[in-house]
Amino acid sequence: MRRFNPAPLFFALLSIIAFYYSDMSALFVANEVIIRIIRNSLLVFALIIPVTAGMGLNFSIIIGAMAAQAGWIFMLDLQVPGILGIAGAALSGIFISVICGYIIGSYLNRVKGREMIATIIIGILGAGIYQFIFLVGYGTFIPAHNSELLLSRGAGIRDMVDLAPYRNIIDRLWLVDIGGIQLPFFMFTVVAAAAIAVKLILLTPAGQRFRAVGSDRGSAELSGINTDRTRIQAMIISTVLACLGQIIFLQNIGMVNVYTAHMNSDIFSCAALLAGGATIKEAKIRHALLGIVLFHSLYIVTPQAGQNIFSNAVLGEYFRSFIAYGSIAIALIINIRHERGKQ
């Protein structure tokens, strides 16, 4: 039985109304949406596999995002330039993500059925440890090689560090301008490759395991699948994808807000996925892509729409975070009720 999911329609309608009142040019919005697709796709893709494995929305993707930031800081600290630096940041980020993903997955195996609340708290714990390492540790028990990063008090990294040596190196590759719309084909290739990779993972035997564990853990266990291990694998893949997503995101922005860049990456990614028509039980690449377009169109136009309708841009900003939180809340409530109805 497939139920009609009104979320994409609702978001499309809302975006169109907000776009109408924002008086922005369609060209500008299109370019912005393209940038957002590149920046956010991988972070949203990262949510798909845990959903398939029945673990719900993985709010701990912010751990992956922080791993990416750690990777960037590591490269800046050692002052590795150019493409080599990007690769180094990605590799060290992946290394941290695999370890963290393993730990998170192992923990989640002990709290089955309440993974989502656990991942939120894990996110807070991770943020605490991250702050401890970079605000207290760097320059004290972690040796600092690049004094430009250091706060003047001698401990901790500055709030904002510049990624000037790496800014837009890879976004500018294969950049094509068609009628004023900038199309960075290299980045499209990266996003497409990630999308295909997630799709392929879900088609292989490993993907079938995820699906089996997601639909019925008991019978998956009976048919000889190691459910605990499968769930850990799902978390590792998710964390690594989130890390790569944040690497791309920060490279595109060109600077790292060391203590705030990861914040809300979980909420906005989840909201985008749900906007595309995914549920907490089922998510696909097309939901992710459609969702990013819809959610971020809304995201781009609301402040200006708020300014024009109520002469207050802050209103639009509050409105979009309400939409993000609200859509997750509604999806959760509907989904849990639906599940209870089945029992």
Partner: peptide
């Protein structure tokens, strides 16, 4: 009462939603 057994996560996001709508 409608999300019995999964109250934690539903309550968390209901709280977040109320706080953000009150911002408006």
């Amino acid at each position: 009462n409608r999300v019995k057994g999964r109250e934690e996560i539903a309550a968390t996001f209901t709280g977040f939603s109320i706080v953000s709508i009150m911002c408006l």
